[in-house]
Simulated assay, not measured.
Amino acid sequence: MKNLVKMILKAFYMFLLIITVTGFAQKTYTLDAKPQLKIIGTSNIHDWDMISETASGNLVAVVENNKLTTIKSLVVELQAESLKSEKSGLDKNAYRALKTDKFKIIKFDLKSSSKQTDGTWNFTGVFTIAGVSKQVTLKVKETSTIGQYTFEGSYSFKLTDYKITPPTALLGTIKTTDAVVVNFKVKFK
């Protein structure tokens, strides 16, 4: 009986040690105040882009020897109307298409990730745009310095995938194409 109690106590102490070590290795990082988020598209007349340099987010990760080994969670949110072009008419049409009166936030919520041998990551997560959520997989490049992790990549999709009608202008003479690309560079520290 004494041996059984000793074995249980040893197992309990090992369990506490593992939880303590894992807990200290896991850290939370906050999205830097100036992310680079850019939507690129085209129309039958010209190319266009919209940029946002404001977003919020958090990264929870396991760090060993100043390197990310596991990402537990990553969320990035931006106000849809923080996206700006150089043309207020384009912005107005884009906000209408994105239904920003009802859906104010564009969000990416990581569900799983895996680090590749070349140092990139595969992120699988849910993008929510204009109230529609889609699971996507992104290949993301990571660069890091001590206590700071930057993720860079792109996501190509069709507006209609998110039930967004491609905007038109001037009584339909200017038509936005369905395909767009989101380029991002976000830094957590």
Rank of each mutant, 00 (worst) to 15 (best):
D161E: 12
S114Q: 14
K139T: 15
S133F: 05
G147F: 08
S154K: 10
I146E: 15
T137R: 03
K115R: 11
S114N: 14
D109K: 12
V126C: 05
D161M: 06
V126S: 08
T176W: 04
D178F: 08
T120S: 13
F157Y: 06
Y149F: 14
T176K: 06
D118I: 01
L170P: 12
Y149W: 08
K141G: 08
D161V: 09
T168I: 08
F123P: 05
K115F: 07
K115M: 11
T124L: 05
G125R: 01
T168P: 04
P167W: 01
S114K: 14
T150W: 03
F127A: 11
L159W: 10
I106G: 00
K175C: 03
T150Q: 09
A169V: 14
Q116F: 03
G125H: 03
D118F: 00
F123M: 03
L110T: 01
T117H: 02
G172C: 13
T124M: 12
T145F: 06
D161C: 08
V181T: 14
I106N: 00
N183H: 10
W121H: 04
Y162E: 08
F184N: 04
K139Q: 13
F127I: 15
T177C: 09
V181E: 13
K102M: 09
S154D: 12
N183D: 15
V132Y: 09
A169R: 12
K141Y: 06
D101P: 00
K111E: 15
K111R: 15
K102F: 03
F103A: 04
Y162W: 10
Q135L: 13
F103Q: 07
D109W: 02
T137F: 02
P167G: 02
F103D: 11
D178T: 01
G119L: 05
F157M: 09
Q148M: 13
K134A: 12
K102I: 04
T143E: 13
T143F: 07
K175W: 03
D101M: 02
K111H: 11
L170G: 13
G119N: 02
W121M: 06
T145E: 13
G172A: 13
N183S: 12
V126T: 15
V136T: 14
K115S: 06
T176E: 07
K107F: 02
Q135K: 15
T120M: 07
V181R: 09
N183V: 12
L110E: 03
A169K: 14
V180Q: 07
V136W: 02
K107G: 09
S154C: 02
P167K: 00
T143R: 01
K163P: 11
T120N: 14
